[in-house]
Design a binder for these strands. Structure first.
Lengths: 108, 108
DNA sequence: GCATATTGCTTCTGAATTCGTAGCACAAGC
DNA sequence: GCTTGTGCTACGAATTCAGAAGCAATATGC
């Protein structure tokens, strides 16, 4: 049976952001996309980059991300699609924000 | 026992973005923050906005988000902190991106 | 040919997380 | 008193994830 047999949660609200938040709001999904931001990675390299994420979940996430047209499988492994790269570019400000956020957290 | 008894996954990598991705990469977390973007919401209003999300998980997420200094509880319910509002502001481009993404998905 | 290694991926079992319902304690209104 | 609404908790069931093992396919060396 397919791992993708139901529509993305919230997709029927008609608000694309809901579908996106739901897709990215699954364990490891954001991390997987993040690790692919610079270069394509093989299945096992991706698994190692995610510090031992189990292959079953990785395979499931890759299937979801390919269906979402954010990741594609090519000769050199898995890579972001142009659309996926667009999305990651939008995360750069968030990365910078996270630095300041971490400092505030340590300050308590 | 506390619902928050272990450090955020990936936090020991020293890269704040990992801790953030891990925090937001839990079911409903991004959605909860999103629903609070405009106005404070009461516990039950928030639960309704998330289409019947179970109160146990909502309570857990609120605890995590409060610990992360992104959400605070006040007179008028739960609201984003200034820091949380900063983060949501960074999501506006992502929302616009999601519109185009949804169109591409429907096109197959 | 044959062994070895590496790859993508599957399968399995037990643990962790999440769900959904019910319900508690409290406050306000009547 | 009784009802209504609130934030929140308890608990069993369902889902998801983790971790280890292993399989088929391909490549490499001898």
């Amino acid at each position: 049976m397919s791992t993708i047999d139901k529509p993305v949660r919230g997709s029927r609200s008609g608000r694309p952001i809901m579908a996106l938040l739901d897709l990215l709001g699954r364990r490891w999904t954001l991390r997987v996309v993040w690790e692919l931001r610079d270069e394509p990675l093989s299945f096992r390299a991706l698994q190692a980059a995610c510090e031992g994420m189990s292959p079953s979940v990785l395979n499931q996430r890759l299937a979801e991300l390919r269906e979402a047209l954010l990741v594609e499988a090519g000769e050199s492994g898995y890579a972001l699609t142009p659309r996926g790269r667009e999305l990651m570019a939008l995360f750069e400000p968030i990365q910078r924000w996270a630095e300041a956020w971490a400092r505030a957290q340590r300050a308590g």
